[in-house]
Simulated scan of single mutants.
Amino acid sequence: MRIGELSERTGTSRRLLRYYEEQELIVSNRRSNGYRDYDERFVDRVVQIRGLLDAGLPTRIIKQILPCLDKPRIIHFADATPEMIATLEHERDRMTERIRFLSRNRDALSDYLDAVRDDNRPDTAMADALTSSR
């Protein structure tokens, strides 16, 4: 598929897709006319990359762990350095904290919506109006 189709299917700008290619996160073949041609598997790959970037991982780390995402049951890094392991642990802990923060905000928003809905119920509004008119 061409870059425009990959862009549409993933909601990712063409410019960002070219950046992912520069960072060697995805690859394309070149057609005879010079256009980029992407394999179907890159639709999921781009979505994965975006999720990891949204979680705060830098592209250099994403590049290292992408092979593991293709075959999660065969995760093994013979060349994993202590620094890389520490970096991944740090990033995992940051994600966990962010998840906790997002969950707390989601719960607060849900509580707020519940309260607003309760206050805007017709029967509650009518009962409040009757009480205040007495």
Rank of each mutant, 00 (worst) to 15 (best):
R30S: 03
D93A: 10
R9M: 08
D114Q: 13
R117K: 10
T81F: 06
Y20C: 02
T131G: 01
G51M: 08
L113W: 07
L6P: 01
E24C: 05
V46I: 05
L17Q: 01
D37R: 02
I49K: 04
H76S: 12
D119Q: 10
M84V: 01
G56W: 05
G34M: 02
N33A: 09
T59R: 03
A115D: 11
Y38C: 00
E21T: 03
P72A: 04
T96M: 14
S7Y: 02
R9S: 02
F77Y: 14
L88T: 09
E91H: 08
N120Y: 06
I61S: 15
T96R: 15
R15N: 09
T124F: 08
Y112C: 14
D111K: 13
I74C: 13
S103L: 13
I65G: 00
E5A: 12
A129P: 00
T81G: 10
R9Q: 10
T12G: 11
M126G: 00
E5T: 14
N29I: 11
D70A: 11
R31I: 00
C68Y: 06
D37W: 03
R98G: 13
E83K: 08
I61T: 15
R134W: 00
A78N: 15
S28E: 06
Q64C: 04
A115F: 11
M95S: 07
R117S: 13
E83S: 04
D93M: 03
R117Y: 07
K71F: 08
Y38D: 00
A127D: 15
E89T: 04
E8M: 04
E89I: 05
D54A: 15
I65H: 01
G34E: 06
D114F: 04
D119P: 00
F77D: 05
R106W: 09
R36E: 03
M95I: 15
A125D: 01
